[in-house]
């Protein structure tokens, strides 16, 4: 079986060590990784929008910060994790294009990051690390064995958080 599992845009996956979860080319979207260091269960969601309640077309729960984290949590608990042990790391939320105008859509990356942090807080999940903002894309990998989050970029190097 493949060791690395790919999470698409507006998608989420849950697995455990030694597997690795990855999502490619995060721009304004945010990758939310949850980790339980005892059972080594990991979950990763690739969210696109901050809030499902503000959008009519909200059938895909993995698309929104609020509903995606909720499902991630439920699936991880279903696999045997304890909510109190969960910690989070997030990456993404960049602003790929810059305009002088006051186009609200341009700040969507920032809004996604803010919403993600609020949702994590409401579930009492501590945010251990983040690599967010800026104006570049990110590919991330979450490792089940250690819980480390690897961030790869084009022209901005590779970092581990």
């Amino acid at each position: 079986m493949e060791k690395t599992i790919k999470v698409g845009m507006a998608d989420l996956k849950v697995t455990k060590s030694p597997k690795v979860l990855t999502t490619l080319g995060l721009g304004s979207c945010v990758g939310v990784a949850l980790y339980d260091r005892e059972t080594k269960i990991i979950g990763l969601a690739h969210i696109m929008l901050p809030n499902s309640t503000q959008i009519k077309n909200n059938a895909n729960k993995a698309k929104f910060a609020d509903t995606a984290i909720d499902i991630l949590l439920k699936e991880m608990i279903g696999m045997g994790t304890n909510k109190s042990r969960l910690v989070a790391k997030i990456a993404g939320g960049a602003q790929m294009f810059s305009f002088g105008s006051n186009n609200d859509m341009m700040k969507i990356g920032y809004r996604n990051v803010v919403a993600t942090k609020e949702v994590l807080k409401s579930f009492n999940i501590p945010l251990l690390a983040e690599d967010t903002g800026g104006n570049h894309g990110r590919t991330i990998e979450v490792y089940g064995c250690t819980g480390k989050l690897l961030v790869k970029t084009i022209g901005y190097g590779v970092k581990e958080i």
């Binding site: 845009m9 490619l24 080319g25 995060l26 304004s28 696109m48 009519k56 969507i108 570049h136 894309g137």
Partner: peptide
């Protein structure tokens, strides 16, 4: 406004805009 980067990251911009309706 020009951006040269990963296709996924650049596409996230129109995807998010379309994503509100489709």
């Amino acid at each position: 406004s020009l951006c040269i980067d990963m296709a996924g990251a650049i596409l996230s911009v129109p995807a998010i805009q379309f994503g509100q309706v489709s």
